[in-house]
Amino acid sequence: MSAWEIVERVRAGELDHETALDLLTGSPATEADAALTAALRGEFERLFTGGWQPVELHRAIARRGDPIQGRLVAEAATTFMIGREPVDDGWRAQAVQLQGSSEQRRRDRIAVLDASLGLLPELRRLPAVEILIPPPGTPATTVHHHADRRLLDRVRALLAKAEATDFPAEAESYSAKAQELITRYRIEEVTAPTAGVTAFARRIGVDHPYENEKAGLLDAVARANGCRTVWSPELGFSTIFGFDADIDAVELLHTSLLVQANRAMTRDEPAKGKARVKAFRRSFLVAYGIRIGERLREVTVREFSGHSDLLPVLRSRDVEVRAVMDKVFPHTVRTRASRVDSLEGWDSGRAAADEAVLD
């Protein structure tokens, strides 16, 4: 049986991994490498043209724990750009980022064969997703308007101080100031909109464990800042809809709040009992997300209270965000909220949310 036939039978599900690996190991190296490379190239092309961005695909594969497979994705993203113009700046930046972060050490050939063979069915299982950044060879269709980098740097600095301090009152002060900066920037943006800027979407990875609860926190942060989210648990990411500058702020704040939540959760969790710890953490994150959402809305309402004239504009922006979301996801399903099985975790989560820095 030729290497090409072996790979095709693996793709068709007719040959198990171990048997195929043994057969490929005994095949001529050039033939086996060519067959696997061609099969993987076809899957990468399907996924990249089908909406997957380099960082997204790398994350989906790398979370399985095989660094060689992550490296294969990084190499494929770079190769995919060759001869395809134009290349979106965001798409190119992701590919360059992956190449710079992937390990460069020499790899054993059998290990590469093993990783490549295992990667093939994983790629085949991934569906096409909505195209949010045009893939190489596709003209750009969206005008991006990211938040002022100076503002984001100030917000990031405040969050870093909030994450570093051991004093809740100090963290609260930094957090509130960060959210105020974000809200004031939104007011400036609403009063002086940039021509051609429209609502669009971005996918944000949500890591396990407790993905549902973390996605709930992201949704709470998004809603307080004029955005909406749709959670895709089977793919491990949420799609966030809004205006570019708002999404920048949401992503930054969500990341910081997760860091703060993890620190507080680890500090307060019970010392013994695996089931008890699991219930505590899940309940903690549910309460934390709900309370963070309440606090963010309080800050937003306070900052916008003197700008009632902006309400029609805000409503118009919200309608546009919802329209984009409904176009991408015409049929969404509301999921049942996570159970709260630990009163201790619930109380601790709300307390930690009150301490959190709201950037």
Rank of each mutant, 00 (worst) to 15 (best):
D268R: 14
D268W: 05
D268E: 15
E269N: 05
E269H: 12
P270W: 03
P270V: 00
P270A: 00
A271L: 13
K272M: 07
K272Q: 10
K272L: 15
K272N: 09
K274G: 04
K274D: 14
K274M: 11
A275H: 05
R276P: 02
V277H: 14
K278I: 06
K278G: 12
K278C: 05
K278Q: 15
A279E: 15
R281T: 03
R281V: 01
R282P: 07
R282G: 11
R282D: 12
R282I: 02
F284G: 04
F284W: 08
F284I: 02
L285S: 03
L285P: 07
A287T: 09
A287V: 07
Y288R: 12
Y288K: 07
Y288Q: 08
Y288E: 06
Y288F: 15
Y288V: 07
G289V: 06
G289N: 08
G289D: 07
G289I: 11
R291M: 09
R291Q: 09
R291L: 09
I292G: 01
I292W: 00
G293Y: 02
G293M: 04
G293E: 02
G293R: 02
E294L: 08
E294I: 13
R295P: 10
R295T: 08
L296D: 03
R297S: 11
E298I: 07
V299D: 01
V299G: 00
T300C: 02
T300N: 00
T300P: 01
V301K: 00
V301T: 10
R302G: 07
R302W: 11
E303L: 02
E303C: 04
F304L: 11
S305D: 12
S305E: 14
G306L: 08
G306K: 06
H307S: 10
H307W: 14
S308M: 08
S308F: 01
D309L: 09
D309G: 04
D309Y: 14
L310K: 00
L310Q: 02
L310W: 03
L311W: 13
L311M: 13
P312M: 05
P312V: 01
P312D: 02
L314E: 10
L314H: 05
L314Q: 10
R315N: 04
R315P: 00
R315W: 12
S316C: 04
S316F: 09
R317Y: 12
D318M: 11
V319N: 09
V319S: 11
V319C: 06
V319D: 15
V319L: 15
E320Q: 13
V321W: 05
V321L: 01
R322M: 15
R322S: 12
R322H: 09
A323M: 09
V324M: 11
V324S: 03
V324I: 13
M325S: 03
M325N: 00
D326Y: 13
D326I: 06
K327Q: 14
K327I: 07
K327T: 13
K327G: 10
V328N: 05
V328R: 07
F329P: 01
F329D: 04
P330L: 11
P330S: 03
H331I: 10
T332N: 11
T332M: 15
V333A: 14
V333W: 12
V333Y: 10
V333G: 03
R334M: 10
R334Q: 12
R334H: 08
T335N: 13
R336A: 14
A337T: 03
S338G: 11
R339I: 00
